[in-house]
């Protein structure tokens, strides 16, 4: 029932990094924008290659924590909890950190003279931070610790500053130090946290410089937070403290990124309006959870055929998240997708489920594999034809279901 236009062909090894090419893609942001390279943190192009990359199974277990955390945040809003950051969240810490799913890095310079810092990007949080000297309880990192005392442009926010007041309003203030310096706290889904002094300094992004960039100077971390070689995290959320919000006046209220398909290829992050060629769907926002950017999925096509899914199933909307690995669908939508995909994969024997994946196949002995196309259709009829990397992971359909349509 499918025509050839409705299939993609994967060749053996296509799901692995067959070729390493770390050169920077040529990207032309509109005038006034800036682009920096972006790499997978585990691969050969990473500025801080992992000494021990997690297995796919472990990454999927961490991913489930992050997805559950995002869902709980909205559940808190729905229940009128208001301060969702303070909602009672209990997650098994032995499974790792929800932040551990973050996979993409950029390299920036902070301070005068600029000190190189390699930071994870995260569209799901706002406060950026780097580990600072002295750091009493921090993880090891590949680059030198950022040393505020060596930067001529560094300053700590006093507790009376408007930036500190804004931080308190977004429930990320953490009191005052004995020197009346504003303290921040970031908390993540597994109970991990980081604290330090809310500060500002010069930020170098590619060929551009941002003066008075606000960030957290991390002096203490607890839990399983970011046990790797990275130096910190760059928040790209929609809240007041994020890099995107801070630079809106300089580069414009827009940013874009391209996440590379393999660990051995490069991507990019652009601040400022990108060039043309996009299909666009309305962005959904929540004043209660300002960090997240939402979209409304309205249909799914498999092998060129639209699945029979009531649009009401998608009414809650979907979060665009750079940190969650696997797309989560309402249960009814996932069931329809899985059934249609299996129907288009009849030539391959089924395989055992793996973690959150339950639609898996046995590709052993295959030199190439044909898979049905998968198109996500967003509000306004915007159709996004997924790359093969976005359809199959390992040997499984790379989607997962929420526990029910209402979650």
């Amino acid at each position: 029932g499918y025509d050839l236009q409705s299939y993609k062909v994967l060749h053996a090894g296509a799901l692995k990094s067959a070729t390493i090419n770390c050169s920077q893609p040529k990207v032309t942001p509109s005038s006034g924008g800036v682009t920096v390279p972006l790499h997978n943190r585990h691969g050969p192009c990473s500025p801080v290659p992992s000494t021990k990359a997690p297995t796919l199974e472990e990454m999927l277990r961490r991913d489930q924590l992050r997805a559950a955390y995002i869902t709980r945040k909205y559940s808190g809003v729905k229940g009128g909890a208001g301060d969702v950051e303070q909602s009672d969240v209990t997650v098994p810490t032995t499974l790792g950190t929800s932040l551990g799913t973050l996979e993409y890095l950029i390299t920036v310079g902070i301070g005068s003279p600029a000190m190189t810092q390699t930071m994870l990007i995260d569209t799901g949080s706002d406060v950026s931070w780097v580990q600072c000297k002295p750091c009493s309880q921090c993880h090891t990192q590949a680059d030198s610790l950022f040393d505020p005392s060596s930067s001529s442009t560094y300053s700590a926010f006093p507790c009376s500053s408007s930036a500190c007041a804004q931080l308190r309003r977004s429930h990320q203030g953490n009191g005052c130090s004995s020197r009346s310096q504003c303290q921040y706290i970031v908390k993540y889904g597994d109970g991990s946290s980081g604290t330090g002094t809310y500060s500002s300094d010069k930020l170098v992004l590619g060929s551009s410089t941002v003066k008075n960039f606000q960030f957290g100077c991390s002096q203490s971390e607890s839990g399983n937070l970011l046990k790797d070689q990275t130096d910190g995290l760059m928040g790209l959320g929609g809240g007041a403290q994020s890099l995107a919000t801070q630079t809106a006046g300089t580069f414009g209220k827009a940013f874009s990124y391209c996440l590379p398909p393999t660990t051995g290829s490069p991507g990019f992050l652009t601040l400022g309006a990108a060039t043309s060629g996009f299909v666009k769907t309305p962005m959904l926002r929540s004043s209660q959870v300002p960090a997240y950017y939402g979209v409304r999925l309205q249909a799914i096509r498999v092998g060129g055929k639209q699945l029979s899914i009531p649009t009401s199933v998608f009414s809650a909307g979907s979060i665009m998240d750079s940190g969650t690995i696997i797309t989560r669908l309402p249960a009814t939508a996932y069931s329809a997708l899985s059934s249609a995909f299996k129907a288009g994969m009849k030539q391959y024997p089924p395989a055992q489920p793996m973690g959150i994946f339950d639609t898996c196949f046995d590709f052993s002995g295959q030199s190439s594999v044909s898979i049905p196309t998968v198109v996500l259709v967003f509000s306004g009829g915007v159709a996004v034809n997924l790359a093969s990397d976005g359809i199959i992971l390992g040997s499984c359909l790379a989607f997962a279901a929420n526990s029910d349509d209402s979650s």
């Binding site: 996979e103 962005m283 950017y293 797309t327």
Partner: peptide, 30 residues
């Protein structure tokens, strides 16, 4: 609530046009 994860975003350029209130997608960007 759904979540569009990073596996599905790979190779696309994903534009967060906050000022314009839109999310954009461009295929084959990297």
């Amino acid at each position: 609530l759904g979540i569009i994860g990073n596996v599905q975003q790979r190779t696309l350029e994903v534009l967060y046009d906050v000022g314009g209130g839109a999310v954009g997608f461009k295929a084959g960007a990297c």
